[in-house]
Design a protein around this nucleic acid. Structure first.
Lengths: 255, 255
DNA sequence: CGGGAGGTTGACTAGCATCAATATGGGTGG
DNA sequence: CCACCCATATTGATGCTAGTCAACCTCCCG
């Protein structure tokens, strides 16, 4: 447990200010939140289902999956969180976990006590709305996920996932190609898309053979971004990643 | 457009106070929200995808589906809202609709302007957290839905949907049986579960033949609740419908 | 250098989609 | 009040997508 300086919260603040307008005081309140850093290992819950927790987890490095499972025990990843994401911001208003959290590969997280977040929102009411808003973007992603899993064949589901991750990770596209680190197993892709790892493997092979994208254990190399977007029926609007400054919301009026 | 008295907001207030502690003033602020009533017809969007809206929609009677669709046009219902639900509460912080809303059969809704909701949260900061919390329950339902659609065979998906609706509608269980109004078509069930209407029809037949549950055009008659719960792997915890008063949350401190 | 997790491939199967034909029933106009 | 009509429900036949089971490979780590 290391104590960390406020600069570690900068990515989270940037996430918030990309979508909402914050005053200098509100920004300072975010940056002043107390944190302590820790490492979490892959394949081990650091938040267990049903557990009541008293802190939120900001991801600094690595990726974290939100895991649910059916009664037969087969698991489904319902969200993938990347650095800058608050993996369980919703726990501020709903402390009893309805899903488990697990790193997809080794990850660094910053824990922030609920009470600190609550104190900040009590002092700066607009922050509650900013955080609420952030949660609703996650919900929009989740909603899109239901459509993918419910109404798309495997090829589209996987292509869509790869597109979503590229956009969220802001992988720069250079002459139709891009690449980004993606340290997940095929089994984890299967859990995210509601498929089996065997089938994921076969689809990834066709992607490779078609010159669309190479997915290895450590990274994704997109060979033809436009084709991948087409293969995944991908429309990035729901990610709300490209909001112009003038469209950013301010709910409680500025003084 | 009829102007309606505050008592119409009572079901919504009850929904909120079931999970959160509100002061008398905060309760009054909810009940004083300005509304106007309207009817919406089945199979016609009353909120269109991408539209920017300036009001939220409280459902008074009937049921409303949140519709998404993939690029081939096949639609997926990502949420079913019942009377007392605010179908698009999230639009307060995210006015651009990422899903369409459509009544499943004729429904009555109360529209409430965003500005009124924002004014209420500005005056009573705790309300923002109460509303945020309500949105997060919807998100938990959505998350459960991904698991169902992604990891369960058709029989389980449909049984789970029926169980969820029974619990949310608070259908009383009498000697292992219960029934509740459910005016939806088999096609709508198919859209909710990510199946085809043909397959839904076949599964419903087996339910009838097995003496589990009768689903007609207008209502659901559960013959054997325990068996239906077993068939749907249903655990109602995620609905947070049974929170004891002492567990209700208050985030911003009471004076 | 050995072990184990994860990747790859094949053979076979099952569940659900698709297409198509017919039945039903509730709502409407005459 | 009846007849008609359209949306919905029902049923059958067939095919495809993805699951299952199983064997083997490969790479990474200790």
């Amino acid at each position: 447990m290391l104590h960390s300086e406020g600069r570690n919260l900068q990515p989270f603040l940037e996430r918030l200010t990309a979508r909402s307008v914050l005053t200098r005081e509100e920004q300072q309140a975010i940056l002043s939140l107390p944190t302590h850093a820790s490492q979490v290992h892959a394949n081990r819950d650091f938040v267990r289902l049903g557990e009541t927790i008293d802190h939120v987890s900001l991801i600094v490095s690595g990726m974290v999956g939100r895991f649910d499972q059916n009664s037969e025990g087969s698991s489904q990843i319902t969200a993938i969180h990347i650095p800058g994401d608050m993996a369980n911001l919703h726990s501020v208003v709903q402390p009893q976990a309805t899903s488990a959290l697990q790193a997809l590969s080794v990850a660094t997280i910053l824990s922030i006590p609920h009470c600190a977040v609550r104190a900040a929102t009590a002092q700066h009411p607009a922050l509650a709305e900013v955080l609420w808003r952030d949660c609703m973007v996650d919900a929009a992603i989740l909603s899109q996920w239901v459509v993918n899993v419910g109404r798309c064949p495997a090829r589209i589901r996987i292509a869509h996932l790869l597109c979503e991750m590229a956009v969220r990770l802001k992988a720069p596209i250079d002459r139709g190609s891009c690449s980004f680190p993606f340290r997940v197993t095929q089994m984890q892709i299967a859990d995210a898309t509601g498929l089996t790892s065997v089938h994921v493997n076969r689809i990834l092979r066709t992607f490779r053979e078609d010159g669309l994208v190479d997915v290895s254990r450590r990274e994704v190399v997109v060979k033809d971004w436009d084709e991948l977007v087409a293969a995944g029926n991908f429309d990035p609007g729901y990610l709300q990643n490209d909001i112009n400054p003038e469209e950013r919301l301010r709910i409680v009026k500025l003084l």
